[in-house]
Structures are given as C-alpha cells and as structure tokens.
Design a protein around this nucleic acid. Structure first.
Lengths: 341, 341
DNA sequence: TATATTTGCTTAAACGTTTAAACAAATATA
DNA sequence: TATATTTGTTTAAACGTTTAAGCAAATATA
C-alpha cells in the first residue's frame, strides 16, 4: 500500500476551476470572496478531507505557532499543572506547545533549547534546571529576538519576563506559622543557594528567625538536592544533632516526604516532637500519614500568566522591552504534620 | 528594537559567491562538494550564527521530523518515564516529540490528535484515555497513512502496533503471590472493563482464582476509576462486607494508595489483617508506610520499544502491514504491604 | 590524441501556502 | 454618458530549503 498523498489547496482549486489563491482566501473568510465561492470551497474541502499544511503556512508567514516549553521534569504535579493551564490558554489562540524535560541536567537543558530553536518555535517558556548557573543559552534565545518567559526557577540577572511566587515571603509565612505552634528551634532543609528561588527561601528563613528573635544556628540550615532520598539523609543529619530541632521546614515536598518517612521509621511523633512543613503542595502531601503542611504555589495561575505574557509578546512585531515580573502570593496549606494547637 | 532577521543559506551563498544549492550540499557533506568549499561554508555559517530553518526543509522533504505523543497525563511516573526513554531514542535519529495530555478525556484526546495531524507530525505514539471507546479518531490517523503506535492502553480491535505488558499474566503473578502468603479471600479493585488492559487484569484475576481453587465472590470484584479518592471509597466498600477480604489487589497504584490510607486510618494492620498489592510501581509505592507491593511495567523498555517501532515505519516509504505486538513480561516487586512470611 | 569519467559547481523547479498587485466586470456617482 | 468605486477574482512572487538535471573543467582511460 503506497502512502496516500494529501489533498492541497490546489486540488480544491482544480475541482472548482478557480485559482489556489481564491481557495486560500475562501478558507480564511476573506471579505473579497463571494459567499457562493466560500461555500463551495468549504464543501469541497470537506469532501476531499482537506487538512491545511501547517509547515507551508508557517514558512510563508514566518511563524510556526509553536511554543517551546522547558521544564526540569513533567512528573511533578507542579510542572504538569503549570503546563496544562499554559496549554489551555495557548491552544485557544492557535498555538501548540512542545514540551521538553531537562531532568535537572544543564546539558540536556541546552540541547532542549537548541532543539526548540531548530523547530522554529515562536517563543520559549522555561523553568531552569537545578544545575543551571551558566545563562548563555538563555542569552542566545534572547539574542534571536524570540520571546523568552521564565517561571518558578528563574534568574533576576537575566532581563526576561518572569512569573513565580514570592519565595522570601513564603519562608516568612512558614516560620510565622511554626512559631505560632510553639516551635522554638526551627531547621531548614533548603535547596542550593545558587538557584534564586532557594536562595530567597533561605534568606526569608533567616530574616524570619531574626524577626521572631529566634537564634540562628548554622547546624539547622542545610542545603540539599531536595530529592526524596536526600530528604531522608538530611533529616538523619538533623536527628544526629545534640540539640535536635523541634520543627523542620523543607524547601520541597519530595524531600519533605523523605524526611517524614525517616521520622515515621524512627517512631518520632509528628508534630509533637518535630513539626514538618514542605513546599509545593504536591498531591501526596495531603495523602501521606500524617499529612504534610505545605506551600501552594498556584501552579494553575502561573501557567496561565506565563501563556498570557507570551501572547502579549507575540502580538507585537518588535521586541517589547517592558518586562513583566509577576510575583504571586503563595498560600500555606496547614495539615497534620505541623498542627499543634 | 526591531526583530532580527535570521541568516539563511542564501546569505552564506552571497558571502562566498556560490549558489545556495552548493551551500545546502556543503552543509550536508555531499560528496560532490570540495573539502575547501565545505570548510568555508561551515566557517561562514558559524560566523553568521546560521540555524537551519526546519520548516522549510520539512516542507520540501515532506516530513516534519516530529513525533506526536498522546498520554492521559504526564504527572505519573509511568508515563513520564516512557516519554523520557522514547525521546532519547528518537532524538538520536533526529526526531523531536510533541507531548500532549488528554487528562483522561476523550474530547481532549481527539483535539490533541487533530492538533498533531495539523502540525504535520510524522507519526503518533499514544496511550488512550480511560474514557475512550470510540476509536474513529485512531482510524483517521491510520487512514492518513501516518504510523500509529499504541502503548499500555491500547485496543486489539485496532490493527495497529502495540507495546505493553501482559496484564492477564500479571494478575496471575499477583494472585499466586498472595496465595503463597496464605491469603484465601482475595478482592480486586479493577479498572473499567471496557479498557482492554483492565479487562485483561480482571480476566486474569478470575482465572487465577479458579486455578487456585478459590471461590469467586462477586462482592470482591469492583470496578473503579482508580483515582486515589476512588481507591479509598472502594476500600471502604470492601470493609463494609460481612466477610471481609484478607487481601486486596488494586489495578493501579494511585487507587492502592487511597486504599492504604483508609486502612491506616482505620488502624487495620497490613499485611496481617489485609494484604495489599498495587499496579504500576509508582515511586511512592516504595515510599509510603507500609510500602506497597506492586507490578513494575518496564516503562523504560516500553518507551524505547515504541520509539523503535516508529523508526522502523519511518524508514520505509510505504506502510508496513506487518504489525508489531510487543508484550513484555511484568515484574512483581514485593514489599511490606503483602509480605506475610 | 580522442573519448570517457569524475569533480565541483549552477540552474531551476519544487514543497503548499499566503499576499501584494493587477485586472475585469459590475455597480455607483457625477 | 463618462468616471469612480466596489466586487470577485487571477497572477505571480515569496517563505528557505532540497534535489534532479545540466554543464564546464579537470582528470582518467583508451
């Protein structure tokens, strides 16, 4: 069986004995085409099962109507929810998205960006890998004049649009909550400082401790890759301290889960002996025993806003120099792991 | 700031005073181009920061080098692992993938397929939504002569390539394991029967019970949407029975998690009072307390095989009528939730 | 030395669409 | 009646690449 060749505008034109141009215009409801012709064209198009060739129109129009997305991974509720909402907004405007995952690898992230540029995407929406410190690849995108929007994991140094939550404030909200529960020795298992959001969470943690006149103890502040495995390990480290903390604020839910497992295994009572707070409000935070208090990052909103910012750019034919830096207020979802009173 | 216009093959040709055709050939290492010219072309290409226009070459060559992927969702470890491995294999051969999510909605699934066809993908690799019973959209893809490969959730009726595990056998393995642990009243919270894989798991469950001379009790076989929430509910239903089961085999890990939570809340001892087995080996299965015994579906292998099958098709210019139906043997990962001896 | 082959390039058409410009016919305006 | 405008269409070029066919010069073969 040979491959069928697809029907083109030309085929429709031949059937009706009109020019391809007329067909194209009829299909786009051009005002200069008669109703009669439009009707006939659409009928024939349907009969022949015509599907427009996106490549050809993209080439001619100079835009692909594709938006590239780069995320560290898709199998986290946060990213998949961001993507889903982003997609919804973009689809409505005729854009499709190409999703790529970096798996937290800088190399893969660069490859992904190359791939996306090669595919002629009209814009890139990205959240950077944990590893990423060298921003030259992002400069490359910028230098091509392609709209670049970062979310969650971004960098202030790069002069690009950004959508995220206020990490500094989030730490304040968490510490405040723990203080209210009566905790006095609050530890922080944070992410790597070179990633802006994690640095902000650490700064917020430190400043919030000061604000509540709690002593800052170096032992209680640990940097972590924030995987489940590393969460266990860092928790073990905290338990080994002479003066154990009475609360642990973990900068990611997966690591918080690891910490929780360890505490459960050691039969340490949550929240009585140690209160636990995570970050990200992954669905499992509500499902584990005890359920984990966590920060909700408004993933849906972030996705929608990112898409909207891209669309703003896309509508202008010159690069918009006015930057959008959208900072959403995060929300603390209080659950059993930290509910003392 | 105006948009920069990208350098094309023509620009390179102008610099070197040769024809665009020569440049194209030089870039593709055509044997008829001299080493000297090739070197010069590549140097100039680099200097001008040339990036090939994928749309133009795709249009000319009649293929986009894009593969469309349709999954129910990306935020499950199974699907994201399948995708990641698929991507790796395809990238090596110069293909990129477009990921779309159906969110288990039939309507969204159809939209996604339309989108992919519109984007001129060279093939589609899909796993169907729970809801999907009408297969006409898949027929549409087939009728276009575009390679279509299904994995995990597929349909035997559709004459297409398929990669998945042996669900029927998996049920046997699970029941056998539970019988070995001494269980005598094994319940099954299954998926919807109209989805082939779930039907196979149910058939396997029934036949395995017969094989071990266990009575088949209608009360013990329940269909479910297999969400965490529904897992709780169906477990509750089982607990309400006059004669409770001593083991529950849940056809999905998320639902198994819901069941586990409920059992934990009711202080029912696992595995002593009720043994629990899930399906899918999601990472959390190992992380919860007690850890859940589950079936590993070899997601990496499925992803790689699906990609390979697509590549086989892509290499031929006619539709290959010989079908690949690859059935992998699943592996039971035994954990605390069912370890009695 | 005459002829064949190879090398290294050019020309031109093609992929399927869009769109500016042109144009004839119909209709409106003076 | 002569001129202007509107309507409905066609023509042709363009988007950036690839590729079959052609051709001149260099080299090999007889």
């Amino acid at each position: 069986m040979a491959k069928k060749k697809k029907t083109t505008i030309k085929d429709i034109a031949n059937v009706l004995n009109i020019s391809p141009a007329a067909v194209s215009k009829a299909l786009h409801d051009d005002s200069r085409i008669s109703k009669k012709t439009k009707k006939a064209v659409k009928q024939v198009a349907k009969n022949l099962n015509y599907q427009p060739n996106h490549l050809a129109s993209a080439l001619r129009k100079g835009k692909s109507n594709l938006v590239g997305v780069v995320v560290p991974r898709t199998n986290s509720n946060f990213f998949s929810s961001v993507i889903q909402n982003m997609e919804e907004v973009l689809n409505k405007e005729g854009y499709n998205i190409i999703i790529t995952q970096s798996n937290e690898s800088f190399k893969k992230e660069c490859d992904n960006i190359d791939t996306l540029l090669f595919t002629q995407v009209d814009g890139i929406i990205a959240s950077m890998a944990n590893e990423t410190v060298d921003l030259s690849y992002y400069e490359k995108v910028k230098s091509k004049g392609i709209p670049l929007i970062l979310f969650d994991r971004g960098e202030n140094d790069l002069n690009v649009d950004y959508i995220g939550i206020n990490d500094y404030d989030s730490s304040h909200i968490i510490v405040e909550h723990l203080v209210k529960q009566g905790c006095k020795r609050i530890a922080h298992i944070g992410g790597y400082r070179h990633t802006r959001i994690f640095n902000n969470r650490i700064r917020g943690y430190i400043d919030a401790l000061k604000k509540h006149n709690l002593p800052l103890d170096d032992e209680l502040l640990i940097e972590s890759s924030l995987t489940t495995e590393d969460g266990r390990e860092k928790m073990l480290q905290l338990l080994a301290l002479e003066k154990r903390p009475d609360a642990v604020y973990v900068a990611g839910d997966y690591a918080a889960l690891g910490a929780l497992q360890l505490l459960n295994e050691k039969d340490i009572k949550l929240p009585q002996e140690i209160a636990l707070v995570g970050f990200g409000n992954e669905p499992f935070a509500a499902m584990v025993k005890p359920s984990i208090t966590s920060i909700d990052q408004h993933s849906a909103e972030i996705g929608k806003q990112a898409a909207k910012v891209f669309l703003e750019h896309a509508k202008k034919d010159t690069i918009n120099q006015s930057l959008n830096k959208i900072i959403l207020k995060a929300e603390l979802v209080i659950r059993d792991s930290s509910r003392l009173k």
